[in-house]
Simulated scan of single mutants.
Amino acid sequence: MAAVLDSVRAFFAQNTFTIDQENPGDVVARENLLDRAMGPNRRRKSSEALRRGRVPAEGLALVARDADGHVIGTVRLWSVEAGVDRDGSSVPALLLGPLAVNGAHEGQGIGGALMRAAIAEAKRRGHGAILLVGDAPYYERFGFFAEKTKHLVMPGPFERTRFLGLDLKAGWLDGAVGLLTPSGRKLARPSLRKAA
């Protein structure tokens, strides 16, 4: 990951932001950014059902920081099973989202930089495919297409034309059919002790 982040940092050194791994101190800033960018209903989306109670895939929670180190953009990828293949075996994949940029920093290439860094790191870590729900005209430039998800469904309402996929390994999603299900590591919950 360090090599990917170093190359992204070098490329954007002339800009006023850097791409970095998310850390525990970013949680409040990230959640506030997502609330502003995605609106009050963001937790009701089908994608959220796949993320709820899970942690992002290892090394795939990224933020953009301004020159002062404040979080101005975020993207996370989550482990899912993308249905099954022709042999009935589950198809591991990643679900990207949400991607969000602080409105005051839109138009600076932050979203694109986060996407490129996330895709490169997912590929470097050996993942086979990334899925997302989003605007096709924006995500097609990164290689995401609805054709890749035509036999897959989300767990809840979704717009077919906005459900997109990208093979990181050639043909990874070919033949994948069925419902997306969460497969990532569960969020650790503190244990409650009963009073004696």
Rank of each mutant, 00 (worst) to 15 (best):
F145E: 10
F145R: 07
S89D: 14
D35N: 14
R52D: 13
P40S: 15
L187S: 12
A93H: 00
D35S: 13
A3Q: 15
D26A: 07
R162V: 01
G126C: 10
R65E: 04
D85Y: 04
G126S: 11
H105C: 13
V101L: 07
E121G: 05
R125H: 09
R193A: 13
A176G: 09
V71S: 01
W78F: 03
E22Q: 14
L62E: 02
F17V: 05
R42S: 08
E106H: 14
G73T: 05
P155I: 11
S89L: 13
L164W: 01
R124S: 15
A104H: 11
R42V: 10
V63R: 00
M38P: 01
G53N: 10
P40R: 13
L62G: 02
L132V: 09
R160H: 07
A82R: 00
V84E: 10
G59D: 14
D35R: 15
A10I: 05
I110M: 08
G59S: 13
E81M: 12
G109K: 06
G88I: 04
P182D: 05
R42E: 09
R160G: 04
L131Y: 00
G83L: 02
G25L: 12
R76H: 06
W78C: 03
S47F: 00
G73P: 03
G97V: 04
E48T: 12
H105L: 05
E159D: 15
K186I: 05
D26H: 13
R76D: 02
E81R: 13
D35H: 11
S79W: 00
F144T: 01
Q14V: 14
D85T: 05
L114D: 01
A188Q: 13
A195T: 09
G111L: 10
V101F: 02
I119F: 08
G109F: 06
A146E: 13
G111C: 07
V27Y: 07
P24Y: 04
G83S: 10
V4A: 14
G143S: 05
G134W: 02
V28L: 12
R141G: 07
P182I: 04
P56V: 07
M115F: 09
A13L: 14
P24I: 08
G156R: 08
M154E: 03
N23Y: 06
H105I: 05
R42P: 05
L152H: 02
V80R: 00
